[in-house]
């Protein structure tokens, strides 16, 4: 099949699916359902596009949609700080890094194989679907919070997270006892520092230092 035709079919199908999702969301839970459907569609559609696209650059941009969608979902889940962090770090940081990598390596437009794609999708999809169905069959969620119905929680999560990060032990708040996360915070800081230093170190090695033996000989 010709590439443009495939492309058209793919995006057509994707758009159709998106519309369906929105419709279902609306029917199920009104406008909040639409919001959810929108973000979910952004997330998943972005991922699908990312896998589908031949060009790495386009894939990377598709991934941006995914990250944004996830951020949206975070918002719906009343985790606004996380949503911000998501956009800042993922969209702003990681994606930029990815694009750098893309630019530093040569493009290979013939690397995508539809057969592999189909096989992978089939098997993973089958497995996921199977497990998903099994889980929905058997799992019992212990849901304590109320379903989201437009009532945004009173206190923003950014503040709670900030306080939590700096507390060394359990402390009392209006919502009850919260735990202190300062150790995790410190740890994260150290990991990040070490990782970045290491990344810089690895990346700056001369290629000649890393020649494998058989190529050197």
């Amino acid at each position: 099949m010709k590439e443009p035709a495939l492309q058209r079919i793919f995006y057509g199908a994707l758009a159709l699916l998106g519309l369906c999702a929105l419709g279902v969301g609306l029917a199920k839970a009104g406008w909040s359902g639409v919001a959810f459907a929108l973000f979910a569609f952004m997330t998943l559609g972005g991922a699908v596009m990312c896998i589908w696209e031949r060009s790495v650059v386009r894939s990377a941009f598709a991934l941006m949609a995914t990250f944004t969608g996830v951020a949206g979902l975070f918002v719906l889940l009343e985790a606004d700080f996380l949503a911000m962090a998501q956009i800042l770090i993922y969209v702003g940081g990681i994606l930029a890094l990815l694009l750098f990598a893309v630019m530093l390596t040569p493009p290979d437009l013939n690397e995508r194989k539809l057969s592999r794609l189909a096989a992978g999708a089939l098997f993973v999809g089958a497995g996921a679907l199977y497990l998903g169905l099994k889980i929905t069959d058997t799992a019992h969620w212990f849901v304590r919070g109320a379903p989201l119905d437009g009532n945004v929680a009173a206190s923003g999560s950014a503040e709670r997270i900030g306080v939590g990060f700096l507390a060394a032990g359990p402390y009392q708040t209006s919502a009850g006892t919260e735990l202190g996360y300062v150790v995790a915070f410190e740890l994260a800081a150290i990991v990040l520092t070490v990782a970045l230093v290491a990344a810089v170190y690895i990346a700056r090695r001369k290629p000649s230092d890393l020649q494998p033996e058989e190529k050197a000989g």
């Binding site: 770090i89 890094l97 990815l98 750098f100 990991v191 990040l192 990344a199 810089v200 170190y201 690895i202």
Partner: peptide
């Protein structure tokens, strides 16, 4: 997220 950032940096170096 923090780890992902670190991972991305290291991975891209790799």
């Amino acid at each position: 997220i923090i780890l992902a950032a670190a991972e991305a940096a290291v991975a891209l170096a790799i």
